[in-house]
Design a protein around this nucleic acid. Structure first.
Lengths: 198, 198
DNA sequence: GTCTATAACGAGATAGAC
DNA sequence: GTCTATCTCGTTATAGAC
């Protein structure tokens, strides 16, 4: 079991992705350079170009990996969590985890810089949000049918509201260095849907 | 009435600010250069340095002007609008106006790039949100006392929720090229507070 | 796969003429 | 106030040795 499928990602390659991911999430795609990554990974800039032809390709790989991990996490939530409100909490928890690492959501950051991104990166960012909203929508629908969630609007609208509110809460929490800012907003958001007690 | 106080802003200086403001709002502070501004204003980069010593000083001036205009607009709302719900709608309208120009909120954009900004710019960004939230908080308090608005949490918390939700809705609306995305989220947000009919 | 070396360009910034 | 000219540095990227 030495060389399995997971190991298509060489050690260096994944270390590059790890460092670059953090740099995008903290400084933005236009806020760092290959030199920054090289210094931290302790390879030369030329080596980076061996693994990723250019910054655009690196960016694509970052979004792809981030999206896969995110949807994997959502699938794990589906397997373990039973009711819709618990799944919603778990969804919020994924965002809180990112923020705990002093980071902005990768795709939220890229949404701000959207206009400056190469087309393939733009498309990948949109896919992230589409998948995220699709998952939320199904959870919301299910919760409404079970009577555990309550809302008047179409589930797709509420899903969009949740995504944008969480992204906005992350966006503001970082400048204030205040994760509580996020938690308060997120709690109120979820509470406004979970009205099973009424 | 030829040279009055308003004219301390020379024509060129304000044209530079206008172009730079749009560039920050659409591409981010790290997404444009002095060359971009110079080309549009039709002056040389050296001329830009005459008006603003460096990009950092230009950035500060941008936030200061943006904040002043914003607070002026809020003061105008206070003068014309009577009840709290109407003022809230007017507040949302200010954001909608920005988005209509295909732009992100200046300070929302800078919040994303916060870590890369010089300290004076960071401080100015925080001041913008502080002032915005303070205004909202007083409107919320007033609305609650009048019975026109209803919410359980401290007004300061709800104010933060509103700001971050609106910023997030703008953030996501732009990649999707969909202003309706913003309007839907904003309407639900305001509606969840205005429960005078219950 | 990683390196050195270098190309080629763009960035912010300054000096000094007009 | 605006210009030309220039500087210095950072940036992405490539060629080719090891």
């Amino acid at each position: 079991m030495a060389e399995r499928e997971q190991e298509r990602e060489s050690d260096t390659r994944s270390r590059i992705l790890d460092v670059a991911e953090r740099l995008v999430q903290t400084r933005g795609f236009n806020g760092f350079s290959y030199a920054d990554i090289a210094a931290e990974v302790r390879v030369t800039r030329a080596s980076l170009h061996y693994h990723f032809a250019g910054k655009a390709e690196l960016g694509e790989a970052l979004i792809t990996r981030y999206t896969r991990r995110f949807t994997d996490a959502l699938a794990a939530v589906d397997e373990s969590a039973v009711d819709a409100p618990t799944r919603l909490d778990a969804y919020v928890g994924l965002y809180a985890d990112v923020l705990r690492g002093q980071r902005m959501c990768l795709c939220g950051m890229l949404a701000a810089e959207f206009e400056t991104l190469p087309k393939p990166m733009q498309d990948a960012v949109i896919r992230f949000f589409d998948e995220s909203e699709a998952w939320l929508e199904s959870v919301l629908e299910e919760g409404r049918q079970e009577g555990a969630l309550q809302f008047a609007e179409p589930a797709s609208e509420v899903a969009r509201l949740i995504v944008s509110s969480l992204e906005g809460a992350m966006l503001l929490a970082r400048p204030y260095g205040d994760a509580l800012r996020f938690q308060t907003a997120a709690s109120r958001l979820v509470a406004s849907l979970a009205r099973a007690a009424e």
